[in-house]
Design a protein around this nucleic acid. Structure first.
Lengths: 288, 288
DNA sequence: CGTCGTCTGTAACGGATGGCACAAAACCCC
DNA sequence: GGGGTTTTGTGCCATCCGTTACAGACGACG
């Protein structure tokens, strides 16, 4: 009963998986489709295009590329999928109750919740997007800058420190619109700007992204699942789950950046190892 | 479970309940709506009318009678409901992952490894130690200072920022042996010093712990499983798993601190909420 | 049987929709 | 740097949409 026709994944997964082989504008559509699933796909082409920041034909081209026939066919499949998923919903209600092991230990509950966020990372970040980010960073960019919002800047800083061990010319911009503006103006065609912008999106991040784009840099945006407004301008978007009660958590964010660095290391090989050796030699910390 | 705005039942229940007060033709529409929910409602008025064996205007009259404004409004509500319901059930995801091309993905391996570290947190940190740490911080200490090593200072800083939202007089000491030494000398009998010292333990951390102890502060040490040398002097020791290849990970460390903050918040109650409100009021970040 | 009120379908209208051809723009590779 | 290719947006059309006005159908009650 839960079986689908052979080869027919749920649309969400189909899109998720094939994101790598899309053109940039198509990818923007795919992103908003996943971010607001399935509502975004049940609206009109015009509405979807507007939400994604592109045009109607791009939406239609996405459909043809995914091998779904017309947009109407796509919507029909979506509706069928939704109906199937909702008629099975009494089940999911039971799951939800079981998933909440009502332990009165506040701390452990917080830990488990965050462990869940980390696990979800495999679902929120499209593999294709990661791959692109990794080869971008491992492909000897001339210059890499990171920056973030009020809290997320700390993760940005950590990313910069870790990345700096692997590749040259990595900078952290604490005040991208102030004292550190030069680090962005220096950016050129193969620079990379990594921008963090999480929930309660800050106005400044949009300006930073625009500035980076304007100077020709490739922009990697790391944001929450609701997608920062800057997502429209960014070249690569890595969405991350951060929601928790009462506080949002950076757990998945940190794991994402660490794993990104890890992957870059594996990908860059020789050069990275050499640089790490240099690093170890010149930066000396007094050990116990 | 899923709490809705007051008075807003799921549309399905709303229709079901008010079926009695409908005209026969309207009831036919309602029936097909319920029979093929929600797909039938996401199609056009013409399609729905045809499926129900009536005419378009009847469909529209149903909407007005149910107090939903236009048909488009109705569809919008339906879409929102569907989205909410589907984002709560990450049921189908596992399939997609299994079906994915089995490139032994470096990134995913890194993520999973870190997820493991977070899970192990429940075993590495003694519950009693956590409990003591929490009641220490929630017990209105006069003063709290955090500091860390070369990398871990970033986590220390984050902890300070988060804690600062809950309790007064929280400081981060970037250079505990340099410019920020005053923050430690100020410490008294009920001050708390939180020190991070991870693998490749740094000499400086021992000095910091000694200094804090000397001035009467209670010392909380957060360290890796092999235990920092400073563990001997510390009052509370929270061990955390950090080991990974090729790099150690701060994932569990961050989760520990966040969850600690979470627990302190739950424990401190009223006072913390009040302080958070103040914080929210005075610190304003420009949002998008 | 006629009249009233309610219920329902037909017809028509403006606006929005999905789809398409075509030209501009961006990109890439010699 | 420039030729060729890919990618993307604009303008347009036929169609379908949601909505409204209107008139016929039905039933109740005098």
């Amino acid at each position: 009963m839960t079986d689908l026709p052979a080869g027919e994944l749920p649309l969400r997964d189909e899109i998720f998986q094939r994101m790598g082989g899309l053109t940039p504008a198509e990818r923007k559509v795919a992103r908003t489709l996943l971010a607001r699933y399935p509502a975004a796909g049940l609206e009109s082409t015009a509405a979807l295009a507007a939400a994604a920041g592109t045009s109607k034909p791009t939406v239609l081209r996405l459909m043809t590329r995914l091998g779904l026939g017309s947009y109407r066919e796509f919507q029909e499949r979506l509706r069928a999928e939704v109906t199937r998923s909702m008629s099975a919903s009494p089940l999911s209600r039971a799951r939800a109750r079981r998933a909440a092991p009502s332990e009165d230990n506040v701390f452990l509950r917080a830990v488990q919740q965050r462990a869940g966020l980390v696990t979800r990372l495999q679902d929120t970040v499209p593999p294709g997007e990661i791959e692109r980010a990794v080869s971008l960073l491992a492909g000897r960019p001339k210059h890499v800058v990171t920056s973030g919002g009020y809290f997320s800047r700390l993760i940005a800083r950590m990313l910069a420190m870790q990345l700096d061990q692997l590749i040259p010319n990595v900078d952290y911009a604490g005040e991208p619109l102030g004292a550190d503006v030069g680090k962005y103006l220096r950016a050129g065609r193969d620079s990379v700007a990594i921008v963090f912008d999480l929930r309660r999106h800050e106005l400044a991040s949009e300006q930073v992204v625009s500035m980076a784009k304007a100077s020709g840099a490739t922009v990697v945006l790391i944001t929450d699942e609701s997608l920062s407004p800057s997502a429209e301008e960014a070249d690569i978007v890595l969405p991350v789950a951060v929601d928790g009660v009462p506080f949002d958590s950076f757990a998945a964010l940190l794991v994402l950046t660490e794993s990104l660095v890890d992957a870059v290391f594996q990908h860059a090989g020789e050069a990275a190892i050499e640089r790490m050796a240099d690093w170890e030699r010149s930066v000396h910390i007094y050990r116990a």
